[in-house]
Amino acid sequence: MKNFLTICCRELAHHFFSPLAYLTITVFMGVTGLVFWGAVRQTLGEPISPQLLLFHPSPLWLMIIAVSVAITMRLIAEEKHTGTIEVLLTSPIDEAAIVLGKFAGAFCFFLAIVAPTALFLVVLRSFSVGLNSPDLGKIAGGYFCLMLVGSFYISVGLLASALTRRQVMAAVLSFSAIIVLFFAGYFHHLFDEGPIRSILLYISIREHVSDFSMGIIDSRPVVFYLSSTALMLFVATRAVEARRWKQ
């Protein structure tokens, strides 16, 4: 547990001591802010919940994907490239602690990036006349969904980073995998009722976000994201351990 915290703290420190981190936060806030503003302008006068304006636009999710890939591409690939992985793996520290610590550090940084978007809702509320009080439960549902999706994307990125020593390759791998999963859910309407449609609906982020931001907490997507994240982390741990396997 202590080793896990040590690795997690190092990752967080690495993120926050880098100017790139603040640039990432600024760009993310700028783009998502513009998207939110555009959505508000388009729906002026319509009875629509503000949390839907925040969580539904696709550009937000594309930014989430980009941020997840940017955060995770270096996690293990950089250690392999610089050779510091040799120091880590020859220290008395478990591979699982390395992987989980890096995941936790990256996830905390991800939360630090997305958390300020809550300010959009506060600003909207402050400058809107006659708007009903926001439903905090629904907003929390939306952010809960964002956390689940974020943890899954970060675990995919971490796995990609564990498979290669080149950060660019890790970014391409994780971006490809995440983008396929992201858009797969959009094509469920192309299929008639059946197993393929069910599977696409099951992994459709758009469907999950709609449910969560309307206050419907369905256990199936929760299980899907948590189990997928756990699977990715398990495989990433095995990928790091593989170096020690007897050949």
Binding site: H14, F17, S18, T82, G83, T84, E86, V87, T90, S91, P92, D94
Partner: peptide, 19 residues
């Protein structure tokens, strides 16, 4: 794990965290 506790290893490239 027991071996790693009693061994100090200095790899060839002297990998360190520059930041």
């Amino acid at each position: 794990m027991a071996v790693r506790k009693i061994v100090g290893y200095l790899p060839e490239g002297v990998p360190l965290y520059p930041e």
